[in-house]
Design a protein around this nucleic acid. Structure first.
Length: 942
RNA sequence: GGAUCUUUAGCUCAGUUGGCUAGAGCGCGCGAUUCACAUUCGCGAGGUCAUUGGUUCGAGUCCAAUAAGAUCCACCA
């Protein structure tokens, strides 16, 4: 007997995972008879511990994975690790700070190596935690976001975008964090309403005594003003348009211009225009060909252009000084508090400075339009559905995407700038060199790295090695080598790309990024897995090319898993990640990257509050696992959760999960004990169902299996889990096992146990595998098993057991309600069902005896409507009267309701016939019962 | 400014073609018990499904409005 009295997960979980890994059950084994099912793990950041959100992610994905594997899909779950450019960089800079260093103490390459080592260390830790959560992923295909194949593909996509004119070098206002010294995409800026001040400042109109009053929240930027603007329809200022004003302190003469951008009703209706420090002003400046004068540097301090006395001041200091000086010279007209929204760095909360900077931009419009078209066509199904609408909305307002980050940690942008002609940029992959020479011209490397979402956005086709960036028009023309090994030959064809409006697109054929491009064309999903052609080619590869390694073969085969079956991730990543994967997936592969999207909500603490370190309410998945076990965590976090809803995570659900594990453990312990330690009959099909309750349990289990299947196909994890819980606890443990204490049908018990193990395996893999390993008659691993067919049962016999259950429940209720002492005897009249099952009834209801008796005496069991009584003395029965009266009241109310419904002509006319029929039937039953209750009441009071 | 979501038992939440007695876990009350499990067993209490109006034979479920709470996007000189 290997079963301990209580299930102890902590001791055994790592061992169980090792069994799986050794057996290789998670390694994909492409089978032609099976349909592919694929999930790619959102790669966790390799810079620290997994948090509760990862716990939920992995639980959900692993449930889907194991469920499909169990149902004989050709299943793959691809794990990964994210270098997480900026995120990791922030973590690492903090570490540097601790040892008194900054990024400026090292070269870019030194920093890169340091972070590489840091991440390598963290990654191992992170991957252990993925295992602790039970994720059944194919580790052979684990992908790190800086792997060679990732960089290759990202470069190929970048190049193709460049060649097709969608990438441009833009001198634009970007969101800049002066603390982290990098720019951000719009989506990475957090806006928050704050109290600020608005100042009214008088600008003297040149050559007159007039002045014009502007309102601003950022007076320090006036040092960079190059115009003052009013609305063209604004009568108040119509005569001033075209005049010049003097910008105070800066003493710059600038024009008064008219532009629709200005809102007449806001403030004084006059806006100072600082093209270099405000995105809207920048647009106005473009329209009116204004100068762009940058007065704030990337260090967050005023630069030399700000002028004597301001250079070197921080923005705040400069603001105070400007206000003071304006006040001194009498040009400050008003100061008031306003609430306005201010952009902050989402990591360090510094105020984001809009600054002019040269960056690489991706023109997203054509990509977004295609994504919208596909979503509207229904090519991707969203769970929950409304997220599709939200995403379309987002796509429609999307602006060009700034791809450049001034962070050393990331994928270097493969672009070089001509030292002598700054306009001249070329694409080149020799990013390891800071300077290169091409055709006698010297080029300097762009020091920036890609926004991590640019590479993550290509994750589905990268991880599956799907041939990307092959223009479908001329598929046979793909030349592979030029891109990967930057040859001189290649550079001759490289376009000199200066701005988005370059003269003509270069003619280099876009190339494939991956070795898989040479190989078999990927199966479509319709034919995948069953295509003879496909498997035939696989065989060819094996036989004809002995030089090809298994890994190569795998590389080629992986492509069959694209598009992914489902993309499961947090709803907070809908815009940041999902939107990009769809756009880039469509662009690079001409297909949607996944067919379904399931978005989970945020995990809140048990009171519905956001978890945060400062609040001290952060729950660590590893701590919970240490305390209750991995399965309990999975069962608990999946419970009571629906798509994209932020929901509280209640430890009581984890506790319930742990108890369920213990329950099943003990069911197994009991079954093994009954079967005997040496029992070795493998379970094929149980022997004939001969005892009461046996047909019933098969029915319950089949129903549960079908329900779980249906629920999981609709991503209703919580309901699926609940079904598993209910059938194991309420049906198997409470009724089936109890009856089997009398019948002892070993082959059925083992069958039922295995059924339970398979049902719960996706949710509680460690426990179920542990039991499987411990049972004397099982082989291999549970994780590698598949479902057999459904077995038949007699539905009438199942119903008989329902009757018995109802009777037993009533007996228990009556006995509990009367709180009589001692055990009762059941007496029954002409009732074949009771007569046949009197022993089991006696056992289940804990009766003293059950015997047939012709005449009625004692307390009639009125609710079940059977000819059955309990031998309770008259005195005790009298106490039962109140209870009966209550029941009679209820029955009467129900009867009235039913009668009312049947009296309604419209109901009879419009409701479905079977429903009406059912109502009639129910009414009869209730009337019948009322009669019995009344008779009983008479008897008790007599 | 635009959009989305939430409001169901003391707590946290399920409830998907509208169908008749609205479910779960925890908590609560009463009772039981030593061999599968106290991480247990039996029984029970607890809900005008935010409010109002509408559609319908029938509404927690659909529609409209209101209230409270949350989130996202845009942007405010």
């Amino acid at each position: 007997m290997k079963f301990t009295k209580v299930y102890e997960p902590q001791q055994t979980e790592p061992e169980i995972y090792a069994i799986w890994e050794t057996a290789g059950v998670f390694d994909v084994r492409p089978t032609k008879s099976a349909l592919p099912y694929s999930i790619v793990m959102p790669p966790p950041n390799a810079n620290g511990d997994l948090h509760i959100g990862h716990g939920l992610t992995l639980a959900l994905e692993d449930i889907l994975t194991r469920f499909h594997r169990l149902n004989n899909y050709d299943t793959i779950y691809i794990p990964g690790a994210d270098h997480a450019g900026f995120e990791t960089w922030v973590v690492y800079e903090k570490a540097l700070e601790k040892i008194g260093k900054t990024r400026f103490d090292y070269s870019r390459d030194e920093l890169y190596n340091q972070v590489w080592n840091f991440v390598a260390e963290q990654r191992g830790n992170m991957e252990l935690q993925i295992r602790a959560l039970g994720a059944s992923c194919d580790w052979r295909n684990s992908t790190f976001t800086l792997d060679n194949k990732v960089v290759k593909t990202v470069y190929a996509t970048f190049k193709r975008l460049w060649d097709e004119g969608l990438i441009y070098r833009g001198h634009k206002i970007v969101n800049y964090c002066t603390t982290h010294q990098t720019s951000f995409a719009d989506i990475e800026v957090t806006h928050r309403d704050e109290v600020g001040k608005m100042w009214d400042i008088a600008y003297p109109v040149t050559g007159t005594n007039q002045e014009i009053i502007v309102s601003t929240t950022r007076p320090e930027t006036m040092l960079g003003d190059t115009a003052v603007a009013v609305n063209p329809k604004d009568a108040r200022y119509a005569n001033l348009v075209g005049e010049m004003v003097t910008v105070p302190i800066a003493n710059r003469i600038v024009p008064i211009i008219a532009d629709e951008y200005v809102d007449e009703l806001f403030g004084t209706g006059v806006v100072k225009i600082t093209p270099a420090h405000d995105p809207n002003d920048y647009e106005v400046g473009k329209r009116h060909a204004l100068d762009e004068i940058t007065v704030i540097g990337f260090d967050g301090r005023m630069n030399e252009a700000a002028g004597e006395g301001f250079t070197g001041l921080t923005v705040e200091e400069a603001r105070a000084k400007i206000v003071e000086e304006l006040s001194a010279i009498g040009l400050l007209r008003n100061e008031k508090d306003i609430i306005h929204s201010v952009g902050h760095c989402y990591k360090c909360d510094s105020i984001i400075e809009p600054l002019l900077k040269d960056q690489w931009f991706l023109e997203v419009k054509p990509l977004a339009e295609r994504a919208v078209a596909e979503i509207e066509k229904g090519s991707i199904k969203f769970f929950p559905e409304q997220k599709a609408k939200e995403l379309i909305q987002y796509y429609k307002n999307l602006k060009d995407w700034n791809l450049s980050r001034q962070i050393p940690w990331g994928i270097p942008i493969p672009a070089f700038q001509n030292i002598d002609h700054p306009e001249d940029w070329i694409f080149d992959e020799r990013v390891g060199e800071s300077e290169i020479e091409v055709k006698g011209k010297k080029y300097r490397r762009d020091e920036d790295t890609f926004d991590t979402w640019f590479s993550s956005g290509q994750w589905p086709f990268i991880t599956t090695n799907y041939p990307a960036n092959q223009p479908s028009a001329n598929p046979h023309e793909s030349s592979i080598t030029t891109l990967h090994h930057a040859s001189p030959h290649h550079h001759e064809q490289t376009p000199h790309h200066t701005d988005r409006h370059h003269d003509k697109p270069p003619v280099v054929p876009a190339s494939s990024s991956s070795a898989a491009a040479n190989s078999i064309s990927p199966p479509t999903h319709q034919n995948a897995g069953i295509s003879v052609n496909d498997s035939h080619q696989n065989d060819d590869i094996l036989v004809n090319d002995p030089a090809q390694t298994a890994a190569d073969l795998m590389d080629n085969i992986l492509a069959r898993y694209y598009p992914l079956s489902v993309m499961e991730t947090g709803s907070d990543l809908l815009y940041a990640w999902v939107s990009r994967m769809i756009m880039l997936g469509l662009y690079a592969t001409d297909q949607v990257p996944f067919k379904e999207v399931y978005l989970h909500g945020m995990v809140l603490d048990e009171h519905g509050k956001k978890m945060s370190k400062s609040k001290g309410n952060v729950l660590s998945p590893m701590e919970i696992i240490a305390k209750y076990g991995s399965d309990a965590f999975r069962l608990g976090i999946v419970a009571s959760r629906s798509a994209a809803q932020s929901q509280a995570f209640s430890p009581s659900k984890v506790l319930a999960g742990r108890n369920l594990c213990n329950k099943l453990w003990n069911i197994a312990r009991f079954v093994q004990e009954q079967a005997g330690d040496n029992y070795e009959n493998p379970v094929e099909e149980p022997n004939e169902l001969k005892n009461i309750g046996e047909d019933w349990i098969i029915g319950q289990l089949n129903h549960a299996r079908l329900t779980v299947e249906k629920m999981l196909h609709e991503y209703r994890f919580s309901e699926a889990g609940e079904q598993v819980y209910q059938v194991i606890w309420n049906d198997v443990a409470d009724w089936f096992i109890e009856t089997q204490k009398v019948f002892n049908n070993i082959s059925l018990m083992t069958y039922v146990l295995e059924y339970c193990l398979k049902l719960i395996h996706p949710f509680a893999p460690f426990l179920s595998e542990n039991i499987w390993q411990n049972l004397s008659w099982t082989n291999d691993t549970l994780a590698g098993q598949t479902w057999g067919g459904y077995i038949n049962y007699d539905i009438n016999k199942a119903k008989d057991f329902e009757e018995i259950r109802a009777l037993v429940t009533e007996i228990r209720f009556v006995v509990a309600d009367l709180s009589t002492t001692g055990k009762q005897t059941l007496m029954y009249g002409e009732d074949k069902l009771i007569a046949k099952n009197k022993d089991i009834i006696q056992f289940l209801a804990r009766l003293k005896n059950a015997r047939e008796l012709g005449q009625s005496t004692g307390l009639r069991l009125a609710n079940s409507g059977r000819e059955a009584w309990l031998d309770i003395d008259a005195k005790t029965i009298a106490k039962y009267g109140d209870h009966l009266r209550e029941r009679i009241d209820n029955a009467q109310k129900e009867i009235e309701l039913l009668e009312g419904r049947l009296a309604n002509k419209n109901y009879l006319k419009k409701a479905p016939a079977e429903l009406v029929e059912e109502t009639r039937k129910t009414l009869l039953e209730k009337t019948d019962m009322l009669e019995r209750l009344n008779r009983e009441l008479e008897a008790t009071s007599a």
